[in-house]
Design a protein around this nucleic acid. Structure first.
Lengths: 151, 151
DNA sequence: TTATAATGTTAGGCATGTCTAACAGATGTT
DNA sequence: AACATCTGTTAGACATGCCTAACATTATAA
């Protein structure tokens, strides 16, 4: 019953919730699209360090959910809906990254690696609090903490 | 080769890295052990909301890795090594929970749910920073942020 | 334009983690 | 002790996500 509601909410056909894995593919695809205006599957494979075969399968699934436009040997593009979803993930990523870097004083790599994983599971509520906190803290206390503990 | 090194580091036999899922089972088992001094598989099933069958399989895997003592229809206990690992996970959980709750002002449920997921993937470095920051912030600024943004 | 290289697809396999159904063993009640 | 119930195990299934190897298609360079 819960399942019924979820699956048929919104677009009435496809469940738009996607796995962490698919989110990674969509995010990579979006970033490549923004940068090159054209997306080749092999660039996604390279970005994510997976085989070409894995990328093909992921693309099929994203297309099924209408998040990208894609056909056999065809041009790949992102739908409006896909772009929104990708932007959401990227926003989460950047918010987490900023918090780790500017508030906690973590290295680029640490901030990056953790953001990449946590972006898929952090809730909206916590994310919003992190964003507000990062802003608040930066304005009021700058990098007091970084200076005191990590220098 | 990287695999070789990992698998044969330390105890020379078993790879002690465990999945998020197994970490959940170990954590639940540990908490039940602490509370009741005795662990029944069905209590783990109930705690994690999984079938008895899934718990049986998880117990087999934890035993293979020498994190618990366990045999068919036998008494279940945790090894020293398993206890250390469980405590590490629980420490991560509590540190994240405290940060979400006392610094960000999140609700019990939000703090709990997010901690449960993030505990498995956050790095040692970031975790340490979160612990230090929570301490530092609580001492110096109390709940300024909570008051300002979430009341 | 044709051979070669690069990219994309498919088939088949493997690992993890979950489930249900059926069976096995242990426990408790009378 | 015997039956009923609870708990644990196994077998078999399914979903996800990854891989390699072989094949298909497209792109590039001679």
């Amino acid at each position: 019953m819960a399942k019924f509601n979820e699956e048929y909410r919104g677009e009435l056909e496809v469940n738009k919730n996607i796995s962490s894995s698919l989110e990674d593919y969509l995010e990579a695809l979006y970033l490549i699209y923004i940068e090159h205006k054209i997306v080749k599957a092999i660039d996604i494979s390279r970005a994510l360090n997976v085989s070409r075969a894995s990328t093909t399968e992921a693309l099929k699934k994203l297309a099924e959910k209408n998040l990208i436009n894609y056909g056999r040997y065809g041009v790949i593009s992102i739908t409006d809906e896909g772009a929104i979803k990708a932007q959401e993930v990227i926003k989460k990523h950047n918010s987490l990254y900023n918090f780790f870097k500017s508030v906690l004083g973590a290295s680029h790599t640490e901030a990056q690696d953790n953001a990449c994983k946590i972006e898929h599971i952090v809730s909206k509520d916590i994310l919003e609090r992190i964003v507000a906190f990062t802003d608040y803290y930066s304005k009021n206390f700058g990098d007091d903490f970084k200076k005191k503990y990590f220098s």
